[in-house]
Design a protein around this nucleic acid. Structure first.
Lengths: 202, 202, 202, 202
DNA sequence: TATGAATGAGCCTTCATTCAT
DNA sequence: AATGAATGAAGGCTCATTCAT
């Protein structure tokens, strides 16, 4: 009973932290802010997470998991391969660009991780996992369609992720420059071009 | 005379700030760190830049300018269009991925800018300028080669920048996963595929 | 049965506290440290000792008792009076200087007691008891030997204690400066000189 | 001019710290207490002493110096050797037992030093210096008087210091048990007994 | 133009204590 | 009799900022 409460409080804190971080960014967020958002005392936060770093680590993995989780489902769409690719790309993009709290937190902590040795491995994992997902998906689909990509399959997933992440940052900085439909269509064209397949008319 | 000295000190501070920020990241850098690196007192820094924000703004524009400047030269290579494209892409990549102080600072402040209304416009400018450069270049080259891209020319530069920026973040997080040659070759293939041109053998 | 268990836990806590205090000193010891050493929760410690002060008081009396107890036996050696004195002094010294946990705790809390009105009386008792012991012993021995000291019998025990305590602090601060044999011999000479008796050759 | 101010403030802080420590003891004294006593902000204290430890170190050396300094003068009394010894012992005692702020601080930090590796060396120095002073004095006086002590000259100063320090702690714990006159007379007798000299009648 | 000194708000963390279970 | 959870008051420290010189 008491243990359950701890788990509940613990995740309340993490969720609160994600909300505050999404709103203010890491550099401007104090434990007090998080405690207040979680409706607890500062002491309670420290009871569950001995240091700020330990909390942020959990926050990061939680946020990356959320972003990841949202895309996993998108891969299994089956049916028409072209339509499936389209849907998957769209979800991949939305999961990052829709300014969900988790996506914002990942983007922010990504920069932090450049200088924080505890954070960096988590982001490396995040990239690796995402790359794997895409690799498996593309490998299946492409062999199903009997075509070979123009660039090595090992690097292709990294390209996809990089492209999306980089575009997301632009979208965050200039919200009106990039529209979802345009981006998806462009990425799609790009992907198809690689395999000598013409994009179907919009 | 006095003005010159002031300008010298001022830029010494900015350069010192770029070095320190590249080393420690924004969230872990204090004005004291910067002053020490610049060989001055904290008071002197405040004399030249009334607030920390005002200094960071100048730092950001200086850093983005440096990254920008490095690529401008790359565009004018002329000669064989394919070779020219290759060279330009390579320089574009290196300017971001070589972990120069300026590139690191831009990557770090990019995240800051999500929560800092003073910083964001500068990054928007940076993106806009880079996109314009690429637009002009591609427009010229493509019409020279008489081909039309498969995706709108308006969005194409954004794609290129996004792709490179996104890949750079991965390279920063996992230094050994992406090698320059691979990236350039892949991006190149990607670009060429868009225009139905096969990449020349390595 | 329940009482016994309580008493057991209670004394476990006190013993754990003595160990931790001997290791870290009062100023650096928290109730958590003590609870952990005792293998209990913080709440359990508070169940047995409502406040930290109340625990420390018991710790102090326990520690002084232990130091005291160890010397009591030394007094009853009988036999050759000179040899008896020698043995007693030696034990008196060792009980304090051997860095037993209890001796360290007494030394540490002695300083605390200067500012803690609850602790001071306990130390006063400790001194008084030790002085009494020595008084009784010396009185018996001296009258048995038929000699009179050169300084008042009332102050003599205080002198002995003071001498030993003061030397112990030096020994604690500089472990290698004072060797047990030297100290005992010196104190012995001192004592004997007071009564015009030459110390027997080593 | 500015430098002087710094030195002044710095020593104001140290003096304030000594007053507060003498009043409350190390374990109960915060930097805020010291800042308030010094009439400055907490930040100012940290400006002059980066850490609490660094301040305490200076406080300790200042306090031991003060205690030391007070006795140095006492040694040079010249004249009748017995009277000189008496005066010196009296001053030695008073410097410790009169509850001057410095003496209290030394007594308190002495216990701290058992667990603080930065403090211990300072106290070792304090003991060493005091022992040396006494050594030189006694050596001169005794050879002037043509007598030899019953215990080794190397250990004799340690005995004197230990005796006084130990008695001081008793006096601090039980202010009314030990009176200065009694102590001095007793110590004097003790010293003289060592050399076979009868103490002159009070 | 530059410095040393000082401020004060805020930060992360520790800790004795309370309390429901 | 004991625990896990939570509190809230300090505590030491950092830091952007101000100011007299």
């Amino acid at each position: 009973m008491r243990y359950k409460k701890s788990a509940v409080s613990s995740s309340q804190i993490v969720q609160a932290a994600i909300r505050v971080l999404a709103r203010q960014g890491y550099a401007r967020t104090s434990l007090m802010d998080i405690a207040r958002e979680a409706g607890m005392s500062k002491g309670a936060v420290h009871y569950h997470f001995p240091t700020k770093e330990s909390l942020i680590e959990v926050v990061l993995t939680t946020a990356t998991d959320a972003v990841q989780q949202r895309t996993i489902e998108a891969w299994s769409s089956g049916g028409d391969p072209l339509q499936s690719l389209h849907n998957s790309l769209e979800e991949l993009w939305k999961a990052r660009a829709e300014r969900t709290d988790e996506a914002l937190v990942v983007a922010d902590l990504l920069a932090q991780s450049l200088y924080d040795d505890n954070l960096r491995p988590h982001l490396a994992d995040y990239y690796r996992l995402a790359a794997e997902q895409i690799y498996v998906y593309l490998n299946t689909e492409l062999s199903r369609m009997g075509i070979k990509p123009a660039i090595p399959m090992e690097i292709l997933p990294r390209i996809v992720i990089g492209l999306l992440d980089g575009l997301v940052m632009q979208a965050f900085v200039e919200p009106d420059v990039l529209e979802a439909a345009d981006v998806v269509r462009a990425v799609e064209s790009l992907g198809l071009a690689l395999f000598g397949v013409a994009r179907p008319p919009a």
